[in-house]
């Protein structure tokens, strides 16, 4: 019960934060110089033409009204119409998500697939070669910018070896293979810094859990090292790893904006960037809010998971 009440409070807090964030987003974007109508019409347009388009887009309505209309729409699932594309924003975001979601998912899977074994092996063999390699990998991986990795991958793998396209996305209808192969290099670029962070956390967590009393007890009771590791140490060490995964979400999204830019992928990061430079205000508002929901939502999930899974909290609930 206490756990549920706590989570309820967290959820309420999250909604409050989102409310403030939405207002901040709206005001920030409104205050930025640039008129969507003028941008759409180009520099050849006369002032009266711009005014006509502003009226058509509803940009001549007062500020509070537009904010409330947007917020009301968000709650009823109507995100509005993109000024520049003239299509529903929800549809736009959906079209871009089918690129960004698989990209970030692939990157995360890849990062976990590298980091977990590497981190565990490093923790099990402190100060041995594998440990040094893991430490070196995590230090260097954290330091290299993912967009630079992307450029190097294009240079070495795409242009050099001729494997995988240099960029662009053929669309899922072109078949799963061409689509996935277009995402391989960007996913690797995105995954390396993530893997570096996770390796480090995994290693530290496994070392810390190994020193806990219950592991020592289990070992003293005659549980083999291997069994103790996979039955007790690793599952318990996963908690901090999952927490870190959650905390890394903002960086994953930031990375996606850059990596999509390098590989010219029509993802949601590119959408945010393009929409902002076109001052497609309604799209920017929704995309940024969407990101905020993801970041905060994932963090709430991680918290919930933490409360539900932590053995030390389990007894006290």
């Amino acid at each position: 019960m206490r756990k549920l009440r706590y989570l309820g409070r967290r959820l309420a807090g999250l909604l409050g934060i989102l409310g403030i964030a939405s207002l901040a987003i709206f005001l920030l974007i409104e205050a930025a110089p640039g008129d969507p109508a003028q941008i759409m019409l180009g520099t050849g347009a006369q002032p009266d033409t711009v005014a006509a388009l502003r009226a058509e887009l509803g940009l001549d309505r007062p500020l509070p009204l537009r904010y409330l209309a947007w917020l009301g729409g968000v709650f009823t699932g109507d995100l509005g119409m993109s000024y520049t594309y003239g299509t529903p924003v929800a549809e736009l975001i959906g079209q871009r998500l089918v690129v960004t979601l698989p990209l970030t998912a692939m990157a995360t899977l890849l990062a976990v697939a590298v980091a977990l074994p590497l981190g565990v092996m490093a923790a099990q063999n402190p100060n041995r070669i594998v440990d040094s390699l893991a430490t070196a990998f995590s230090q260097i991986g954290i330091a290299v910018p993912n967009f630079w990795i992307g450029l190097l991958l294009i240079l070495g793998v795409s242009l050099g070896l001729g494997w995988f396209p240099t960029g662009g996305f053929p669309g899922w209808r072109a078949g799963a293979l061409p689509a996935l192969s277009a995402l391989v290099l960007p996913a690797i670029a995105l995954a390396i810094p993530q893997a570096a962070v996770l390796t480090r956390v995994t290693r530290a967590a496994v070392i810390e859990v190994s020193n806990e009393d219950f592991i020592r007890t289990a070992r003293a009771k005659g549980l083999s090292r291997r069994r103790a590791l996979w039955r007790h140490t690793v599952p318990n060490a996963l908690l901090p790893v999952v927490t870190m995964l959650g905390l890394q979400i903002p960086f994953l999204i930031s990375g996606a904006v850059l990596v999509e830019n390098v590989f010219t992928l029509p993802g949601i990061g590119t959408l945010a960037y393009q929409a902002l430079s076109q001052r497609d205000l309604i799209v920017v508002q929704n995309v940024v809010l969407f990101f905020a929901v993801i970041v905060l939502g994932v963090n709430l999930l991680v918290d919930a998971l933490y409360i539900l899974l932590d053995p030390r909290l389990r007894g006290s609930g």
Partner: peptide, 26 residues
Amino acid sequence: SDFPAAWIQEVFTDTDYDMTIIGHAE
């Protein structure tokens, strides 16, 4: 200057600038 949004506003609409540079495509 962030192009096109800020540039159009500052240079084109408000003419608040000394010198700028742009390609005229029409």
